[in-house]
Amino acid sequence: MEWRILLLARRGRDAAVIQQLLSRAGHQSLICESCDTLAREGRRGAAIAVVTEESLLDTDTGELDAWLREQPSWSDFPFVLLATKRAGRRPRDALRMLEQLGNVVVLERPVHGETLVSAVKSALRGRSRQYEARHRLEALQLAEERLINLNGSLEARIAERTEELSSANHQLVQEITERERAQAALVQSQKMEAVGQLTGGIAHDFNNLLTVIFGNLDLIQRRTQDETTGRLADYARQAADRAARLTHQLL
């Protein structure tokens, strides 16, 4: 479909003769009855078009112009125009028509068959380069889409990994905090244990001293006959009792 040649030659047997000539050269062609048909078939797919000048003059070319404007960026559809030989300058309408066609090769009639076939082959080579450009453009677009998808996937994976690392970091911070609290509690417990051991040792030593004091106070109270001395011994024993109670609280 993309390599067929569209023919527009509305006078006499021109279209049939051109089609027969191209067929002998190995090219598939389709005869179009009007500019609208040419535009419609061009949208379906074609390589080039061979048209006669009179087929484009004094007719509505709006649909053809619209199709040419709609071409994608890679396309510049080639025309081979069989023009009527003129003695002077071409009419303004003919010049405007050439400008609208854009990529056009003009052959003045009468034209030799080999010349026409050569012009067609040259136009086909140009169209082939356009198809190659389209292929490269499509490959670039496909690569761009793949890159966009890859970037999206990579961003999603990075976000997922970042969330995992953030969660792991949060858990690690919590574990470190709990460990620090446990270590602080252990240190405090060890301090309290050391203080308790020290206090217990002091209390035992103090009890030993109090035992001696109580013993001596008992001797004083039993042996003294002096009332003042006995009263002082009582005061001393009361103080020793309070000291004994304090020592007991430390144990």
Score class of each variant (00 low, 15 high):
residue 114 E to H: 05
residue 114 E to P: 00
residue 115 T to A: 15
residue 116 L to K: 01
residue 116 L to M: 08
residue 117 V to K: 00
residue 118 S to E: 15
residue 118 S to Q: 14
residue 122 S to A: 14
residue 122 S to G: 09
residue 124 L to K: 05
residue 127 R to I: 00
residue 129 R to H: 13
residue 129 R to P: 06
residue 130 Q to R: 05
residue 131 Y to F: 10
residue 136 R to C: 04
residue 138 E to M: 13
residue 139 A to D: 07
residue 140 L to K: 05
residue 140 L to W: 01
residue 143 A to M: 06
residue 144 E to T: 06
residue 145 E to G: 02
residue 146 R to E: 05
residue 147 L to H: 08
residue 149 N to C: 04
residue 151 N to Y: 10
residue 151 N to R: 14
residue 153 S to K: 12
residue 154 L to T: 06
residue 155 E to Y: 05
residue 156 A to K: 15
residue 157 R to S: 09
residue 157 R to W: 07
residue 159 A to S: 09
residue 160 E to V: 00
residue 165 L to Y: 02
residue 165 L to F: 02
residue 165 L to I: 09
residue 165 L to P: 03
residue 166 S to H: 06
residue 166 S to F: 03
residue 171 Q to L: 14
residue 173 V to E: 12
residue 176 I to R: 12
residue 176 I to E: 11
residue 176 I to T: 11
residue 177 T to K: 13
residue 178 E to V: 01
residue 179 R to M: 10
residue 179 R to W: 06
residue 180 E to F: 04
residue 181 R to G: 02
residue 182 A to H: 04
residue 183 Q to E: 10
residue 186 L to M: 11
residue 192 M to L: 15
residue 193 E to C: 03
residue 194 A to Y: 05
residue 194 A to W: 03
residue 195 V to E: 13
residue 195 V to F: 06
residue 195 V to R: 11
residue 197 Q to P: 01
residue 205 D to N: 11
residue 206 F to A: 12
residue 209 L to Q: 11
residue 210 L to Q: 02
residue 210 L to A: 02
residue 211 T to N: 13
residue 212 V to K: 07
residue 221 Q to L: 10
residue 221 Q to A: 10
residue 224 T to V: 03
